[in-house]
Design a binder for these strands. Structure first.
Length: 468
RNA sequence: GGCGACGUAGCCAAGUGGCUUAAGGCGAAGGUCUGCAAAACCUUUAUUCGUCGGUUCGAAUCCGACCGUCGCCUCCA
């Protein structure tokens, strides 16, 4: 398979450092607030990537960090007059609640910055020994001029950066582009002791420390939003390679923004919806289908109109799954098999996903299958159960296991009980009789009232079906 | 100012030199089925890929100019 690598600016054959193991590190949230639906896009697409790599048989170690010490957390803590850890814990919990609702698989490790102070200090010490970091009165900075390859990820040149520097002036820095590895403690901030005095880590160093600790000095995939390319990921490379003198990451993957009216959704612009609010109105599957229908690296406009359109698409999938399940219930094990080769759909699905996780194409394969199978079903012939099983197996291993877009049928025990089922059956029987006697108004009334209660009656050739 | 990305039907979106006289989803129009619905099926919905030039036997796909949109260069997924 091929993956587009930001570092080389082209698609490259994916060759893990140590197959079949694959190490993935994704920049996770700073836990100072609920994450918005734009953040959710990155998390969902990273989830689909790791699910697909597992589908391919790789042994994936998926690491997502939680930044739990940072200016914004401290600011909020001071506003509420609580410890920073209180804020961090609150939004860490919220983060886990929200990703679960989005059907995002748990990472193997969720390292926290505050849990890796020792590793962070080790790294800074080594950078200091290598002459790359300098200490000015308790603040330690990275000297970007000491790393020859600085700018290789973002394609920026130091001269250009300096020319357009909008970085705030800081007398302590040798160069405006130097960045903080360690910040000396200020009043009302969490702090740890270090060789340079009390302080806290800079933002970039935690990711170098935690990714190398959990995945080694060179690992396979490092992913994050497009806005992290510079300076965050650029700095991570400088820090990590400045110590290890080895390539830090083989494949850099960056997610396109979720836009609102063509503008990047962001907290600072204020044009955002929290993921939790969107999940209240649309299902995880709808959101995941919407994201899957665009390539992960392209910008995607977000609107209710698009969500509704995805919801309609999802209904098509859900109806189909229900139809196949109903057919399977009535099918004979040794029935006929239609002229249909399921393998071609697996092949096409894999071809699509192998091409830099082309999920829109993969989704198209799934819709193609639905259309073609529906066509076969409309021929009104009975097929053997292995046909329906093949279809369900395909959907489970692709649409669900990789993309996560198959809705769980509401289990009978949750929504109803046996008595309700019997009463429903009774009503359906009465309605069927009414229909036979052409009492259509009465029959429609039953259908309407039940629909209001959440039960949809559908008349088919084989009788009336109840959808809950 | 520097660097970069993008512009495909009413909307979203694949396709990056011949397999495509452009996938898939949503929407719209007509039809089949049905007592009616719903679902499903069939047909129609871009001779054309921002504009203008160029390269090529051949371009949405390569090159150039122009127009437009967005992003990064400060925290941001």
């Amino acid at each position: 398979m091929e993956i587009y690598n930001t570092l080389t600016k082209k698609k490259e054959e994916f060759k893990p450092v140590n197959p079949p193991n694959v190490g993935i590190y994704v920049c996770g949230p700073t836990v100072y607030d609920f994450f918005h639906i734009g953040n959710a896009r990155s998390f969902v697409m990273a989830d689909i990537m790791q699910r697909y790599l597992r589908y391919k048989g790789y042994k994936v170690k998926f690491v997502m960090n939680l930044t739990d010490v940072d200016d914004k957390i401290i600011k909020k803590a001071n506003e509420e007059d609580v410890e920073a850890s209180v804020i961090a814990e609150r939004f860490t919990n919220a983060f886990f609640e929200d990703i679960e609702k989005l059907k995002i698989k748990k990472a193997d490790v969720y390292p926290k910055a505050t849990g890796h102070i020792k590793e962070i200090l080790e790294l800074i010490k080594k950078l200091e020994i290598n002459g790359i970091a300098y200490n000015t009165g308790g603040d330690v900075f990275y000297d970007v001029h000491k790393f020859k390859e600085y700018g290789k990820l973002s394609g920026k040149k130091l001269d250009d950066l300096e020319a357009g520097a909008r970085v705030e002036v800081n007398d302590k820095k040798h160069n405006p582009l130097d960045f903080a590895l360690w910040k000396s403690a200020k009043e009302g901030e969490p702090h740890w002791s270090s060789p340079w005095g009390e302080g806290r880590p800079g933002w970039h160093i935690e990711c170098s420390a935690m990714s190398m600790k959990h995945l080694g000095e060179t690992f396979d995939i490092h992913a994050g939003g497009h806005d992290l390319i510079f300076p965050h990921h650029e700095n991570e490379i400088a820090q990590s390679e400045g110590v290890s003198h080895k390539p830090f990451v083989k494949y850099w993957v960056h997610f396109g923004f979720l836009n609102i009216k063509n503008e990047k959704m962001s907290k600072s612009l204020g044009n955002f919806f929290t993921a939790r609010d969107v999940i209240k109105r649309f299902s995880a599957e709808t959101i995941r289908l919407l994201f899957s229908q665009a390539h992960y690296a392209s910008p995607l406009n977000f609107s209710d109109e698009l969500l509704t359109s995805a919801q309609k698409g999802l209904e098509k999938i859900t109806n189909f799954v229900q139809t196949i399940n109903n057919k399977l219930d009535k099918a004979e094990p040794d029935g006929n098999y239609p002229e249909f080769i399921i393998q071609t759909y697996y092949d096409k699905f894999e071809q699509a996903m192998d091409d830099d996780f082309n999920s829109p194409k993969a989704v198209a394969v799934i819709f193609d299958l639905i259309k073609n199978v529906n066509k076969i079903l409309s021929e009104d012939e009975q097929w053997g159960s292995n046909f329906y099983e093949d279809i369900l197996d395909f959907l489970n291993s692709t649409a669900e296991a990789v993309l996560g877009i198959i809705q769980e049928p509401v289990s009978a025990s949750e929504s109803t009980n046996e008595t309700v089922d019997k009463l429903l059956d009774l009503l359906v029987q009465i309605r069927t009789k009414a229909k036979k006697e052409k009492l259509y108004e009465f029959a429609d009334q039953i259908r309407e009232k039940l629909s209001e209660l959440g039960f949809t009656l559908v008349d088919t050739k084989d009788g009336t079906e109840i959808k809950k």
